[in-house]
Design a protein around this nucleic acid. Structure first.
Lengths: 239, 239
DNA sequence: AAGTGGTCTAGACCACGAC
DNA sequence: TCGTGGTCTAGACCACTTC
């Protein structure tokens, strides 16, 4: 029945079954690689591939000399999907519209440096924009771009293209951090978005890093009900 | 430079450097395994291990016959830390207190079944509780437990122990889903938490699954400012 | 000291899918 | 068709860590 699966995936699932059924409870020490290799009639590397994949998804923990153990479930980490705003609007079945509010080029203030986690003098671009789903404001965005790392950004026309789109396709990056919290709309943001002051919003702050340092920091405000972030525990299985 | 890193990690980083520096831009077809194997003077499996690891984190995409390509970033996934409430309170430097508000055992209503994504008649446990940081309400929690899957829960005394703690240690589970959104406090919740109706909150809904079906669904409400979720370790997704 | 995982080799055959 | 990745073998030596 599992004939079209690779051998190491079959091994992986056999072990998963033991774990999920409770036969191998948290803390249980599972058989050593050389035993599993006999049990499944395959080479050690194949067993190893299955075990490594279970370590990657957090179900097993390995310690030299001690053995391989079923982890105590904590649910501490989950794979969070961070949607592209335009895509999220279109997926919800609304036409997407983007509006540039303001753009300013300036020497970085202390606030800017703190937001970008970037020391030393530098120029930044400060961009404020709104994203609409039909005629409803879906998100307000304030973005700082570090011109020391992405100088070409200064030459781009952001009236028709959201900065995120340009950045994704023109600046190589390697890592990002996100903070997610609830908040209340301040007066200026409320006015810009056409909502009541104090309205609840989801605030998503993202910092994106490249080899040369922080590239950009973006704060996005989503009115309550517009966006639901979704995270699932199971990450992609390798292979 | 002879580093203390494994060979495949060195290969991985060498390729990452090409990608992050922009030398190998999105869409670029990287050398085939047999070429890289000569280039790095190692066996094909070692190159393969490095490439697979880059595929897992979303930086590369592989197509048979066509080759291995640098992905175009679109949305992305991040590793989200989901804190244990008690730990979050203690980490913030406050004493933690848990208060059971109500507990009810009943036949599952249509609402319950929908929340648990569980068909068929079943009994559930409906538990409402509050979590305090010192004398401030840190979170309100409403939890449903599927007694068809976790019947032992009916016999547990939850006055002194939050249900999450008991569940984590007594019921094997394999998967969890989280929804994160902003909302406004309803009247009942506001009264229970000692806050104004309409106050902004972060709503975290979690469904936990085991082999036999959904075990529990929990909705946690955090007043704005109490909790910031943090996600990092980027995984790109091509699209 | 010895058990266990971590890594690596130098091949091999197969399957998919772009051409 | 045949280039490319996907997987697997049957060994090997090393490093770490607990015993």
């Amino acid at each position: 029945m599992t004939s079209n699966q690779s051998l190491y995936q079959q091994i992986r699932e056999a072990i998963e079954e033991k774990i999920f059924s409770g036969a191998w409870p948290p803390g249980f020490r599972i058989p050593i690689e050389r035993e599993l290799m006999e049990q499944f009639g395959c080479s050690r590397m194949t067993v190893n591939k299955a075990l490594i994949s279970l370590v990657d998804t957090g179900f097993l923990e390995r310690r030299k000399k001690a053995g391989t153990f079923v982890t105590y479930p904590s649910g501490h980490y989950a794979s969070l999907h961070i949607p592209d705003i335009r895509k999220a609007v279109l997926d919800a079945g609304f036409p997407y519209r983007y509006l540039l509010q303001s753009i300013e080029r300036r020497a970085a203030t202390a606030d800017d440096a703190a937001a970008l986690r970037f020391d030393g003098p530098s120029e930044i671009l400060d961009i404020r924009s709104l994203h609409y789903a039909a005629d409803r404001c879906f998100a307000a965005e304030r973005r700082r771009i570090n011109l020391a790392v992405a100088p070409e950004a200064a030459t781009v026309d952001f009236t028709g293209m959201p900065p995120s789109v340009w950045l994704l396709t023109h600046v190589p990056w390697s890592n990002a951090e996100h903070d997610i919290e609830a908040g209340a709309l301040g007066r200026d943001d409320a006015a810009a978005m056409g909502l009541a002051e104090g309205s609840p919003v989801l605030r998503l702050t993202r910092r994106t890093w490249g080899a040369a340092g922080t590239i950009t920091e973006a704060e996005q405000l989503f009115p309550a009900g517009e966006l639901t972030l979704h995270a699932s525990f199971l990450v992609k299985v390798s292979g």
